[in-house]
C-alpha cells in the first residue's frame, strides 16, 4: 500500500507541473543500430499539447509495462535506469476535443505499469472523427522490463530491451530492434520488422509482410496469410516460416540438429543456407531447383531429397510450395 502511495505522489508531483521534459538520472541507451522514430512533424492547424512524466519505483522495480494506445504511435525504448519516463503528444481539431483525450497510468504494486489512452464520450461532446485526433506515446523504460504493447493504426516500435515483448496492432506497422527475450508480434495488416532479436520469435500477420534480420533465438516461427516473409542472418535452431499466398525468402545458418521448415501454398520458397555440418534437404513444389547441388532423389511420397555432408547430427531442411517454385542454394 505504501508503495502505491509513493508512486501516486510522484505522479501527482509531476502532474502539478514539476515534471521535467527529460527523465531525471536517465542513462543514455546503449548504442545499437536501432533508430527509433522522432516526434511527429508539427501541424499548423488544430490544438496540440505534450507532457512528460517520470515514474520512479518505490520498492518493487518496474518489471512489466503494458501499453494500449489505439489513438496513435507507441514507442518504447529500454535504458539502464529504473524509472519510467512517459512523453505524450496529443493533437485534436480544437481545445474541447483535446480535453477529451486521456492517458491513464496505473502503477501496480507488483511492478506492472499500465498506460492506456482513450477518448471521452458523452452526449454533449461535438462528434469528432477518429482520424482527426491523435495521441503518441514515447516511453523510456528499464531495459529489463517486459513490454506488452498494443496499437491500432499507429506505429509500434520497441528497442533496446532485454525481457522480450508482446506486440499487437491492427493496421499499424511493428518494429522491434535490439531485443532479447521472447518476442511475440501480431498484426492484421501492419508490416512487421524484427531485427537484432536475441530470443525466440513468434510473428503472425494476416495481410502484411514480415521482415526478419539477425534473429538468433532458439526458435523462430512466422506465419503470414497474404504477404511475404523475408529473413536474413537467421541463426535460430528451429525455424518455421509459413505463408498462404506470399513468397518466402530466407538466408540462414543451420546448426547441428537444426531444423528449418519453409512452406507456402501459392508463393515461391527461396532458401540460401550457410551450413556447418551435414544437412538433409527435402523439397516439394511446382518446380524444385537445387542448383549446383545436383539431382535430388525422388522419394515415394513425392518429396525430392538431397543429403550433404556427414549424416551424424545432420540438420533437416524442409521446403514446400504447392503452387509455387522452390529453390535451395548452399552458400559456402
Amino acid at each position: 500500500m505504501s508503495r502505491i502511495a509513493t508512486s501516486l505522489v510522484l505522479v501527482l508531483t509531476a502532474a502539478a507541473g514539476r515534471a521535467s521534459a527529460e527523465p531525471k538520472a536517465v542513462a543514455p541507451a546503449a548504442k545499437s543500430d536501432c533508430t527509433l522514430p522522432a516526434a511527429a512533424l508539427a501541424s499548423k492547424t488544430g490544438a496540440s499539447e505534450s507532457s512528460g512524466l517520470d515514474l520512479s519505483p518505490s520498492g518493487h522495480p518496474f518489471t512489466h509495462l503494458v501499453v494500449d494506445n489505439p489513438l496513435g504511435n507507441v514507442t518504447v525504448e529500454g535504458y539502464d535506469g529504473v524509472a519510467i519516463h512517459i512523453e505524450t503528444r496529443k493533437h485534436a481539431p480544437d481545445d474541447d476535443t483535446l480535453e477529451r483525450l486521456r492517458v491513464s497510468l496505473i502503477p501496480s504494486a507488483d511492478g506492472t505499469v499500465r498506460i492506456t489512452s482513450t477518448a471521452d464520450g458523452g452526449r454533449e461532446v461535438r462528434p469528432v472523427a477518429r482520424g482527426a485526433v491523435r495521441v503518441d506515446l514515447f516511453i523510456r523504460a528499464p531495459r529489463n522490463a517486459h513490454v506488452e504493447a498494443a496499437a491500432s493504426a499507429g506505429k509500434l516500435d520497441i528497442a533496446n530491451l532485454d525481457a522480450g515483448g508482446d506486440l499487437d496492432t491492427a493496421s499499424g506497422p511493428i518494429s522491434v530492434c535490439n531485443v532479447s527475450g521472447e518476442v511475440f508480434t501480431h498484426s492484421l495488416t501492419g508490416a512487421t520488422r524484427l531485427q537484432q532479436v536475441f530470443g525466440s520469435v513468434d510473428a503472425q500477420a494476416v495481410q502484411a509482410d514480415v521482415d526478419l534480420d539477425t534473429i538468433t533465438g532458439e526458435r523462430l516461427v512466422a506465419t503470414v496469410d497474404r504477404g511475404s516473409i523475408a529473413g536474413r542472418r537467421v541463426r535460430s535452431r528451429t525455424v518455421q516460416l509459413t505463408t498462404t499466398d506470399g513468397r518466402i525468402r530466407l538466408e540462414a545458418e543451420v546448426a547441428l540438429h537444426g531444423r528449418i521448415s519453409a512452406a507456402s501454398l501459392g508463393g515461391d520458397v527461396d532458401v540460401r543456407l550457410h551450413r556447418h555440418g551435414g544437412v538433409v534437404v527435402r523439397a516439394q513444389g511446382a518446380k524444385v531447383d537445387f542448383g549446383a547441388l545436383g539431382v535430388p532423389a525422388v522419394l515415394a511420397d513425392g518429396w525430392r531429397q538431397i543429403a550433404l555432408g556427414a549424416a551424424d547430427a545432420a540438420a533437416m531442411v524442409e521446403l514446400r510450395s504447392q503452387h509455387g517454385n522452390v529453390q535451395f542454394v548452399i552458400v559456402e
Binding site: A39, S48, S50, R130, G131, V133, S152, A153, S171
Partner: peptide
C-alpha cells in the same frame, strides 16, 4: 510543438 493528425483508421 504540435503533432500531425492521425492517418485514417484501420485499413
Amino acid at each position: 510543438d504540435a503533432v500531425a493528425p492521425a492517418p485514417p483508421g484501420v485499413a
